[in-house]
Simulated assay, not measured.
Amino acid sequence: MIAAIMVGLTAFTLAGFLLPALWYEVFDRHDPGRILLAVAAVAIVFALYGRLLWLNLMRRTAPGHRFGLAAIAVICWTLPPLLGTDHGWGNALLVPAGLIAVVLPVRPATAVTAAATVLTPAYGIVLGLPALSALYDFAGVPLAAFSGYVQVWLFHVVQELREARAEMARSAVGEERLRFARDLHDVLGHSLQAVALRAEVAERYLDRDPGRVRKELTEIQTMARDSVRDVREVVRGYRATSLRTELDGMSAVLRAAGIRCDRPEVSPELPAHVHEPLGWVAREAATNVLRHSSATWCEITVDAGRDRVRVEIVNDGAPRRAAGGGSGSGLTGLAERITAAGGRFTAGPAGDGTFRVTAAVPAAPAPRGAA
């Protein structure tokens, strides 16, 4: 659409150069031969000029376009001696200049423009144009060439900016989808695993301890409601994770599964920005211990130093996890979260039958835009 408008405006400019002289031929001279020649020449110039400009705006450049430019130059430089320089045909000498930098590469275009700047006024003087017209041609050739170059260049810049903006929008959508998928995995993976565990415990005590079953069912209801709330908060993008809350929930869930796990002490003075990434570490670690190990104990350590806050989670029963093959998308998501917070994350078997997850986040918030 924009390209068509630019071609139309250029044709309107050309009309100012050529149509006054054509008007004089048609309505004043009444010479059929001259009229036919003038109409044919102007029509060819308009058609070639518009097509060459359109193709270059669309980046469909070709070496053959130089022949089109040469044809326009021949026609425009032939009309003044054939039809006379009076009544405006001398303006035709400037018409090819607007396409020089459009059709030709920069270096050849510069050389051709320099030559045309000298030859055009000299040719005009030979044809009998006034000195003022020759001076106008001397200044008009480089201006027309530069104008044509800037016109095409600006069009391409605008197109590239629009494409870049569209690509950034697509990238932002993709990143948001990845974030949502990661958050949803972390929330539902942990919550559903905990619900399944509580249901198994309730089934185990179904015949021998109705009170324990009622307690487990109550816990299942609470977890389900919390999961619904968490999913809603993830969808809104405002979910705030507390490290202390996540560690309390992790230790309670593991103890309910028969895994010894003491709740660690968490300083109330932890920086606010460390809670979310380290809270996700605790949540995903609990899910992995339940799902991928035959752990009997899990040890959680929180170390808050001046420079960084470090959480380490170690559990036994790692051989069973290794047999499962692969770390899954949960640990990959954790690594992305900790890296985005400017920290370091490691996870893997320690070689002594244990599995160790370590995450450290700087005590000072990472600068915006930092990886």
Results as ranks from 00 to 15, higher is better:
V45M: 11
W153M: 13
G8P: 00
D137M: 15
G16L: 11
E233K: 09
A11I: 12
A101P: 07
A272W: 03
W297E: 14
R165S: 14
N56F: 00
G8E: 04
R208P: 08
Y136F: 14
A3T: 12
D307Y: 04
G317Y: 07
Y149I: 05
R51H: 13
W280N: 15
A70V: 11
L192P: 06
I220V: 04
A41E: 07
R239D: 05
A285P: 05
W77I: 01
V235C: 06
Q159E: 15
V26F: 02
A131C: 07
D31P: 00
R229K: 08
T332P: 09
Y205K: 09
L83W: 01
P277R: 03
E276I: 00
A134I: 06
L197Y: 04
Y238G: 15
W23Q: 10
W297C: 07
W23C: 01
P367F: 07
L135G: 14
G369M: 03
R283N: 09
R321P: 02
D352N: 10
A15R: 03
R51W: 14
R310G: 08
L290G: 05
E276H: 10
R182P: 07
L243T: 01
I313F: 08
V126P: 05
L48K: 10
V102K: 01
R170L: 14
P80A: 03
E175H: 15
V26N: 05
G33Q: 06
A370N: 09
I44E: 10
A341P: 06
G189S: 01
V39A: 03
E25Y: 02
F12V: 14
E176L: 14
R51P: 05
V173R: 15
R170N: 13
G174M: 15
D303Q: 13
R204N: 10
V195Y: 02
L135D: 12
R320K: 14
W280I: 05
V106P: 10
I125Q: 15
A41G: 12
V102S: 09
D28E: 14
A40K: 07
A97S: 08
S327M: 14
C261G: 00
V201W: 06
R260C: 09
T339G: 14
L184R: 11
R170S: 13
C261W: 01
P271G: 02
T120W: 04
A109N: 02
I338Q: 04
W77C: 08
P319W: 07
G211Q: 13
G16V: 01
R208C: 14
A252Y: 00
A360R: 11
P362W: 06
S191W: 03
P81E: 03
L132G: 13
L99M: 08
V103C: 08
W54I: 10
I300N: 06
P268I: 05
H185K: 11
H273P: 02
E25I: 03
I5M: 14
A282V: 00
V95H: 06
